[in-house]
Write a protein that binds this DNA or RNA. Sequence first.
DNA 1: CTGTTAGCGCATTCAC
DNA 2: GTGAATGCGCTAACAG
Lengths: 327, 327
Amino acid sequence: MNINEIAKLAGVSRATVSRYFNDGYVSAEKKEAIRQVIEQTGYEPSMQARNLRTNVTRLIGVIIPRIQSEAVNRMVAGISEILSADGYQLLLANTQNKPKEELKYLRLFRKNQVDGIIFMGTIFSKEHIKLMKELDVPIVIIAQEFDNYSCVYQDDYHAAYDAARMLAKTGSHFGYIGVTEKDKAVGQSRKKGTLDALKENGIKIAKKDICETQFRVDGGYEKTQYLLEQSPNIDTIICATDGIAAGALRYLHEKNISVPDQVQLLGFGDTELGSVVTPAITSVHFHYKTTGMESAKLLLEILQSGNDMQKKIKMGYQIIEKGSTRK
Amino acid sequence: MNINEIAKLAGVSRATVSRYFNDGYVSAEKKEAIRQVIEQTGYEPSMQARNLRTNVTRLIGVIIPRIQSEAVNRMVAGISEILSADGYQLLLANTQNKPKEELKYLRLFRKNQVDGIIFMGTIFSKEHIKLMKELDVPIVIIAQEFDNYSCVYQDDYHAAYDAARMLAKTGSHFGYIGVTEKDKAVGQSRKKGTLDALKENGIKIAKKDICETQFRVDGGYEKTQYLLEQSPNIDTIICATDGIAAGALRYLHEKNISVPDQVQLLGFGDTELGSVVTPAITSVHFHYKTTGMESAKLLLEILQSGNDMQKKIKMGYQIIEKGSTRK
DNA sequence: CTGTTAGCGCATTCAC
DNA sequence: GTGAATGCGCTAACAG
């Protein structure tokens, strides 16, 4: 069943049927005739043919590092909501933190596969940058700030700064468990914000009390053990994510170290993971779902206006005090 | 840049260029010539044109109820891994538990938009069934058993049965917190398995000690309060999900009721959420990621063989004893 | 192994 | 307002 048959059955030309679906420049009677034929046949225009002709797919490519992360899936939920409401569909590329996969998908999306891309990158190599430049479709970077592109991201630096300043009132010997500095947002900014705040509040933190691990609960466990074994008088640990903090908490529990009395703990993300533990982990809330929604809105705006004004949207945050920190 | 220009530059016909990308029936020299031109121009074949010609999109529609669920995103991760390895892409439809959205996407996918569908349904209405029948593309149901379709699902009944039988040794007064029975897998089967096991082990559970809530941590908290207020001597609570169990645990903590000594707790899913709390929640491990992978493999099998043999794959499970249950 | 030919189903001129 | 004609970029016979 194609547009030709519908046209024949309705006694019109196929151009008229096409208009029926698009501009609508069709007289009332022909409209009705076409409507009836469509209803009887259950005809649906072929997306493939339309895509080829118009070069528009109404598909948005979304590249994420890992779907099994609350921050990530909250953002994806937000993206999905906006796209769906506007009649766009979401082509999901889960790269499992493999840069090669990111490149593969950027390449795949490069040529009109999609109308636009939302890219949740973590580490940007030269190859990424080169490939992104070659892209024929607009791209919005999410969760990282990145020159020359529209992006929506968290204010990681100030979030960490404010949180650390708060803890500086109740803590004196700090430990920090971060992630790779190749990740500018989570790795660099949160660490820098923390260290700057401590410095400005007259708190010294030794190099050996600053460490790095993976985005995993286990990492928090191991590094907390490491930190406390070498610096038993640490009374405050700041972790770059709630997951890491949850791991830290588990270690402290096992060693019967009371939280927050002996050691207080801070995480980032205000995730469910950090909320179900006891005590719940004081954390910085980021508006992840809204971040996703904003990135989608921004991309659609670019698509509709036809030009990328390289808007940078820095999202707000909120420190949520729970039980893991001292008053 | 299209296939014609590449052909001209390489001094071959466009059919040869097409073969270069497909069957590969091209002599070594021409192959090399084409390779060079492609490299220089960065040419990529248009998916749109190919799709129109072949009626194949290499797109798989995946319909899920909610991305913000560990069970769901583990399954999606598995699906994604297999599809990606086989050169398929994942068109994600997040329905937010709205049946209307499910219908919308089934309709959208109906006509050749995608090569196949993986449908993670929870509640199947008559309209769902009607629409699914009309589908021109193969469909695999995931996480639910469903007549007349290929499906991959958990053995919820026996998982619950075995877990409850185990707890019957150490518990005597049971409470059950489930979810809507409209969800056959999580709502019905887990409940029935639990109740059957208790009955067969001579344990009576009062109707009032069986309740129902949402798929949320809060629900576990509220219902545990409700259960213990009306039946203070409950010593075992079985929850249909780890999230619900985490909520239960929080309530018990707040009331200083010791877990597992006074009340033991069981969840389902063996999620991270259930692992970070103290004590960690004894739970039934389902191979969610593998489930996702299996569903994708099954769909690809159907796609390649060209016929849907309506295979039913029931996945295994494993009870993981952690700290929330008595020995 | 290779080139020629003929569409896939649609949207969009351009006349009328 | 409408229809005839054209081509989007590609693959798949077919003949050589």
